[in-house]
């Protein structure tokens, strides 16, 4: 299995691009922990000291208590995702529902390769674009134009590609002279126009999108809708988190219901939606 995977990697590295239309997501036994650094855990001095005292304490206390694992007690984590298993095929539009803190955004970040899991395996085939951050990954101190150039370099565009990207985003965002000013000076609406134009100019095979992209004020939504729709249509796989039933029903073909890091249910939109709204426990 692993060997086979390795061969696949090598084949790609040798320049045999995967055929478009072959996008997929394969998640196996995925778990994600956030380490929590409380108290002195951020300090090298205190960590070294406490590991020394723990060792001494452990030796002294050996005759007494037996259940104290000196190493383990120090590590505090939030278990964000637990043993997830699912596959997404090309053409599917997966919606993720769940209460606040269920782990939806964390799952998107893992699929985008931002957070690496502590256990399990994820395999995403195809180019990925993540629309997660409210600042669209822009540097607020740089001008709009500089941000566009950086994004172009990030996705590996040639000079002419970057020029085209600039032209495209400029036309959408319609910022005029503000293009040459630091993004920090923009109004919030201008930031969204630029960031949205930039993020959606790059059309991936696998699009990972957090809910708020759909949740802007309705006026902006109208304006951006067509553009977003083309990107979503162009993507082979969409993974979208949302709390809005309407959005999910419009965009998705399948729902994944997460609750405190576990998959509760996975299936057709209407069925899962009904159960989610009813708050019913899973049939299993």
């Amino acid at each position: 299995m692993e060997l086979h995977q390795g061969d696949l990697d090598r084949a790609h590295a040798d320049g045999q691009a995967p055929v478009r239309g072959g996008a997929f997501i394969d998640v196996q036994d995925l778990s994600l922990d956030f380490p929590l650094y409380h108290g002195g855990a951020r300090s090298l001095k205190k960590t070294v000291l406490s590991s020394v005292t723990n060792r001494v304490g452990g030796q002294l206390g050996r005759s007494g208590g037996e259940n104290d694992g000196p190493e383990k007690t120090r590590r505090v984590v939030v278990q964000a995702l637990r043993h997830l298993n699912f596959q997404v095929k090309s053409g599917e539009r997966l919606g993720i529902v769940g209460r606040n803190g269920a782990g939806k955004s964390s799952l998107l970040r893992v699929l985008g390769g931002i957070y690496e899991p502590v256990a399990g395996r994820i395999h995403v085939g195809g180019t990925i674009n993540t629309l997660l951050d409210t600042n669209f990954g822009m540097n607020l101190d740089l001008t709009g134009r500089e941000n566009i150039t950086l994004r172009g370099r990030y996705v590996g565009l040639s000079a002419s590609g970057i020029a085209a990207l600039e032209e495209d985003v400029e036309a959408f965002a319609a910022l005029g002279p503000f293009m040459e000013l630091p993004v920090r000076l923009y109004s919030s609406g201008m930031v969204v126009r630029l960031g949205f134009g930039l993020a959606t100019a790059i059309a991936p095979q696998v699009l990972l999108m957090d809910e708020w992209f759909m949740a802007g004020d309705s006026k902006f939504r109208d304006k951006a809708h067509a553009r977003l729709e083309t990107v979503v249509r162009g993507a082979e796989i969409l993974v979208l988190t949302s709390h809005m039933p309407g959005v999910l029903q419009h965009w998705c073909t399948r729902l994944l219901w997460l609750e405190s890091g576990h998959i509760v249910a996975d299936g057709p939109v209407d069925e899962i939606m009904d159960r989610y709204n009813a708050g019913a426990p899973p049939a299993l």
Binding site: A13, D14, P18, P117, G120, H123, V124, T127, I202, Q205
Partner: peptide, 26 residues
């Protein structure tokens, strides 16, 4: 193709960018 792990590419004639993400913590 060597940039196989970096995400996001202009969906385009850049046939060069073969991209996939494989993270195996096991």
């Amino acid at each position: 193709t060597r940039a196989a792990l970096h995400p996001g590419a202009m969906a385009s004639g850049q046939q060069g960018i073969a991209q996939e993400l494989l993270i195996d913590a096991r």
